[in-house]
Amino acid sequence: MQLRRSLLALSAALLFLAPLARAEAPQVQTQVPGYYRTQLGDFEVTALYDGAIELETKLLKNARPQDLNALLARMFVGNPKMQTAVNAYLINTGKNLVLVDTGAAKLFGPSLGNIAANLKAAGYSLEQVDTVVLTHLHADHMGGLNDAGGQPIFPKARILAAQEDNDFWLSEKVAAAAPEGMQPFFKLSRDSAAPYLAKGQWATFAAGSELVPGIRAVKANGHTPGHTAFAVESKGQKLLIWGDLVHAHAVQFAKPGVSIEFDVDQKQAIATRKAIMKEAAASKVLVGGMHLPFPGLGHVRAEGKGSYAWVPVEFAPLPARP
């Protein structure tokens, strides 16, 4: 009898607890802040995620459809639309706080425009940025210079652009001679630069220039006339931030001869990509790319003659500082 009463009591208790076990937790439906930090010698490098946008695979040129489809499927990348990240990089040299590109703001829709928020989430303020260097003057790289009202958000920064891109994208004369479909892109560039030009915070640089100690401009033209990579070096450790050398990682590492419609000079863009990939694979330098899967940091591995693979970094803690 005692055993029966105990079993009945246990059954009642389990019945009471059952609803608790079935209680549903609401889904959070948010992602973690988009930043990733790594150490480069004495420099702290923080990758910042602006967001992602879907590009039509038909924008890729010089690829047979069957090859394109196979490469996209091999890397489980969407087709006919592929997701493409937009990244920026914040470099704290100890003396300068340098932002490489600013993202797109909301110029291309709500899926982008998170650089400022992620910079703050990473522990910095917009006022602390003293230098902004631009790989080129496409709006998805400079649109984040201003807020939604067109006001500058980097009050203390000097903005540095390659002379060739400055003379191309900010020229109303060049814009007027361009195809009608391109003219809105010229206007986006001029509008983004205007507040800083008015305040005297805008300046240009030449390839090979050291922009701040430890960061040097590297000529990488083709995608735009002044498209620039940046070599970052501290205590013998090196990072090459190569801007828009690659838009479709699933395709353009294996086939560097594939270009994209946005390349101003398709032939030169291909030649630049081939040369930089060959050097990066040989030197094993750490690479950062604005349209590589976030955080866009990794290495280039040779995969045979003229073909390469992308090897992303593994998530890792920062080394202990003395």
Rank of each mutant, 00 (worst) to 15 (best):
E180S: 12
Q128M: 07
H227E: 01
Y35P: 00
P33N: 10
G51H: 00
A203L: 07
Y36E: 02
G149K: 13
Q2Y: 08
S307I: 06
R74E: 11
G113L: 02
T38W: 06
K81Q: 14
L97E: 06
N62C: 08
W310E: 00
T131C: 07
D50L: 07
Y196F: 03
A176R: 08
M290Y: 05
L17T: 07
A148Q: 15
D167N: 14
A302S: 15
G123M: 05
E44V: 14
S6D: 11
A18D: 08
Y124M: 04
A23F: 15
A175Q: 11
R64M: 13
W310D: 00
P225F: 03
S192R: 00
P80L: 12
E127Q: 10
L119P: 00
L137H: 01
A157L: 01
S125L: 06
W169I: 01
N221G: 01
R321H: 10
A21S: 11
N62A: 10
L55Y: 13
V300F: 02
F108L: 13
E303P: 05
S209A: 15
G181L: 10
G208V: 10
Q268V: 10
R64G: 05
I270S: 09
L292Q: 09
A121W: 05
K255T: 07
K219W: 03
V45F: 03
M75H: 14
T102C: 11
G236F: 05
L97C: 09
I115S: 02
H223W: 12
H136L: 11
A161K: 01
L245H: 02
N96L: 08
M290C: 15
R22K: 13
M277N: 09
W310T: 02
K274I: 15
K81D: 06
A309F: 08
E56M: 08
P195T: 00
A148G: 02
A88I: 02
S192D: 00
Y36G: 02
Q151R: 14
F230W: 08
N96P: 07
L97Q: 05
K106H: 14
V313E: 04
S111H: 08
P179A: 15
I241P: 00
I215S: 02
